[in-house]
Nucleic acid binder design. Structure first.
Length: 557
RNA sequence: GCGCCGGUAGCUCAGUGGAUUAGAGCACCGGACUUCGGAUCCGGGUGUCGGGGGUUCGAAUCCCUCCCGGCGCGCCA
């Protein structure tokens, strides 16, 4: 990347200055190269002299001047200026963007990919909604986020695995309540007057599941007890159906998991109790008040936490530790990223502590909490509750505004920010949604390339990049050159929301170029050939960024 | 009470140490094409960057404090 090249030049200049000062071994500070927001300040800029001014207690402008004089020559640099309090501004010749364009046309699908992550084995676990209902718009946000984060990590060279954790253990009270809800509906369908569980799931799908049991088994399960055991009987009857539905919901969103990991596997293989034993042996867990406690308090949590209840049943954290042990030890991930909803926020410190207590460096575990999504309809926030049944399913939303728009809306905002999802607007905008703005740019460029096949004056000759000097061409090529750095940054910051923003900016420069730079022109075949290269390069980058976001890159719309 | 995330244009949000012009989309107003797709382009912004204090050559960005909103604090998952 061009930034690295400039950074290297500055490093050489710095070394030369320090050598002439008699300090050849002075450590080089981190050199920041940034793009000035004001184009008058050059193509790239560095604040190195300002930082050195702080350290050396010297005038930054003089330092900048010295650095400038000792910068090695480079054909890509047109001129260098010292500006403001001591910025070093680089003005580059057009040739560097031509070089980048050439590179795009060679690398194609690989342009924007890098090896910044050097093969680190990373797992991203996300969605992981309980199998008690379809994915709904309240718990869907982690889907596109996790999926695109995984794409980003792959793009920078990590080995990534996407995982869905199914909390399907019988001890899960949500499952019990859900099973009891199905049972109640079942008996109602059989004509009984039974009370619905107080915290039961009211969605219509529960009645449909119950109807399915009636259709298949008739009254066979009428006499099943209305205790926990009975509820679990009904859960098991519908479990496969629920998991299958989760599969479908994720597919509909364009997400394919590498692994659907079942909590029951941990229990059935005895891994939960084994993990508890190991923690007791290592001293990380101890017995008190007839329960077994984990020393999470020693690892940054507020207090120690119960691992095994007085009644002998392991708590949720016990199976989560066994699960973490499986991730770090059995499967050997270097890094594990948990993408959780805001309701799990309070759980992070104890989970971190638990991971520390089992002897794993806690920096290898990352917890990303996405903030709540508020859905607005008619200007009023919707109160959504899976249990009351007034849910909007992800499927309904996708049918309503389209998969790409759903993904784009969820992706657009930082996960730290609460997201207002205006359903009226999303529907009404379906035709002029931001996602279509980006896709339209891709379709337009594709259209030009199709048309170019049909004109005789293009021939098979190569375009001459040096002809590309129009301001809108230069702006566009600079934008294309930005792309790989954006990918690295989005991956490092775990910030997929940078992608839609960059994609919109790129699409805008494409549309501007299109408006002001006629590509196909029979009077000027040479310029046509050159501009076709920008068209192709831009199409490639749009295609790549849409792909990273998991969106279609349509050639026609 | 403690903790986390937010507070930036009418609305929804980017920007988290850089340049006395703080940006985008939406909405609103006005313009643009006899040729490549008008799902486009161009023009139109008087913002206490929640308030106050501090650090710095430089602060929306870092620190302290207060206010407002959302969420979380179980031998539930």
């Amino acid at each position: 990347m061009i930034e690295d090249r400039l950074r290297d030049l500055l490093r050489q200049a710095y070394a030369a200055v320090m050598t002439s000062e008699g300090q050849p071994d002075a450590p080089s500070p981190a050199i920041a190269i940034e793009k000035p927001s004001n184009p008058e300040h050059g193509d790239f800029s560095s604040n190195l002299a300002l930082q050195l001014g702080n350290i050396l207690k010297a005038n930054p402008r003089e330092i900048a001047q010295e650095l400038k004089e000792r910068l090695p020559d480079d054909p890509v640099i047109e001129r260098v200026e010292v500006a403001g309090p001591g910025f070093i501004n680089f003005y580059l010749t057009a040739s560097w963007v031509h070089t980048t364009l050439q590179q795009i046309l060679v690398e194609r699908k690989n342009y924007g990919r890098s090896d910044a992550c050097t093969g680190e084995k990373v797992q991203v676990e996300f969605v992981s909604a309980n199998p008690v209902g379809p994915i709904h718009i309240g718990n869907a946000r982690g889907g596109p986020f996790g999926d695109v984060l995984a794409n980003l990590l792959e793009a920078v060279g990590c080995q990534v695995q996407r995982e869905y954790y199914l909390n399907d253990a019988p001890s899960n009270t949500q499952l019990q309540i859900f099973g009891a809800s199905v049972q109640a509906r079942y008996r109602q369908l059989l004509g009984e007057d039974v009370d619905f569980p107080e915290d039961g799931y009211h969605g219509d799908y529960v009645t449909e599941l119950a109807q399915g049991i009636v259709d298949e088994y008739g009254e066979k399960y009428r006499e099943v007890g209305t205790d926990t055991e009975g509820a679990l009987v009904f859960f098991e009857l519908v479990e496969d159906n629920m998991v299958e539905q989760l599969h479908c919901d994720c597919s509909a969103m364009g997400i394919e998991f590498d692994e659907w990991f079942r909590e029951t596997d941990l229990h059935e293989q005895g891994l939960v109790l084994k993990q508890v034993d190991e923690l007791r042996e290592s001293g990380a867990a101890y017995e008190k008040d007839d329960a077994i406690w984990l020393r999470t308090g020693d690892f940054g949590d507020e207090e120690d936490r119960v691992l095994v209840r007085r009644d002998g049943a392991p708590t949720y954290i016990a199976s989560d530790i066994a699960y973490a042990a499986n991730k770090f030890y059995t499967r050997g991930f270097d890094r594990v990223i948990y993408v959780w909803g805001p309701d799990h926020f309070g759980y992070v410190p104890r989970m971190k502590a638990a991971i520390g207590a089992m002897g794993v460096d806690i920096d290898r575990a990352e917890f990303i909490i996405y903030q709540t999504v508020r859905f607005l309809e008619g200007g009023e926030p919707l109160r959504l509750s899976k249990r009351r049944g007034d849910i909007i399913t992800l499927r309904e939303l996708i049918d309503d505004i389209g998969r790409d728009a759903v993904r784009f809306f969820f992706l657009m905002r930082s996960v730290d920010a609460h997201l207002d999802f205006d359903l009226d607007l999303a529907r009404q905008q379906s035709a002029e949604n931001p996602v279509y703005y980006v896709q339209y740019a891709h379709a337009r460029l594709s259209s030009i390339l199709r048309e170019a096949e049909n004109v005789d004056y293009i021939g098979g000759e190569d375009g001459e990049l040096a002809l590309l000097t129009h301001p809108d061409e230069l702006t566009l090529m600079r934008k294309l050159a930005d792309y790989p750095g954006q990918v690295v940054r989005a991956a490092q910051e775990r910030a997929p929301h940078r992608l839609p923003h960059f994609a919109l900016e790129l699409a805008q420069t494409v549309h501007q170029f299109y408006t002001n730079c006629r590509v196909l022109d029979s009077d000027n075949p040479e310029m046509s050939r050159a501009r076709l290269k920008i068209v192709e390069g831009s199409r490639i980058v749009l295609h790549n960024i849409l792909g990273l976001m998991g969106l279609d890159a349509p050639e026609k719309m």
